[in-house]
């Protein structure tokens, strides 16, 4: 399981990378591999406001639909539009090219509630057991 150390994770299998006040958000390697081939992704638009723990979009494989939950609250400032035509990027490169949205974080205190790589890895193992 590929879990970069510089990221924060959620129990809903999203990751979040902070740069200043800006968070880049995607789904984890574990999430993409359990979903299988991703065929469709529905993302918010720039300017939309997302709220921590609430749904901001949907990813679909041929057999499953999964909601995307925001790891942090804030305004969407960038969306990875090319995913619409190439959702397979999420399978191929979940942490870099497969990022989904960038959010201007409204409350940095929320970051404290997120998991680090080690605790997320442990969480996934327990979930599978």
């Amino acid at each position: 399981m590929n879990l970069p150390d510089d990221l924060k994770y959620t129990k809903e299998h999203e990751w979040c990378r902070m740069k200043g006040k800006r968070a880049t958000v995607g789904i984890t390697d574990h999430a993409q591999s359990s979903l299988g081939d991703i065929v469709y992704v529905e993302l918010p638009e720039v300017g939309d406001v997302v709220k921590k723990g609430e749904s901001f979009g949907v990813v679909e494989s041929t057999k499953a639909v999964s909601e995307l939950f925001a790891p942090v609250s804030g305004k969407v400032v960038e969306v990875n539009d090319p995913l619409a035509d190439a959702p397979e990027t999420i399978n191929e490169d979940p942490y870099e090219e497969g990022w989904m949205i960038q959010v201007e974080v409204s409350d940095e205190k929320e970051l404290a509630g997120l998991l680090d790589a080690a605790s997320y890895g442990k969480f996934v193992e327990e979930e599978q057991a």
Binding site: S61, T62, A64
Partner: peptide, 14 residues
């Protein structure tokens, strides 16, 4: 058959 994620057997009440 395709795009079945729209349908009841996957999305159920949604």
């Amino acid at each position: 058959l395709t795009l079945s994620t729209r349908e009841q057997h996957i999305r159920r009440e949604r």
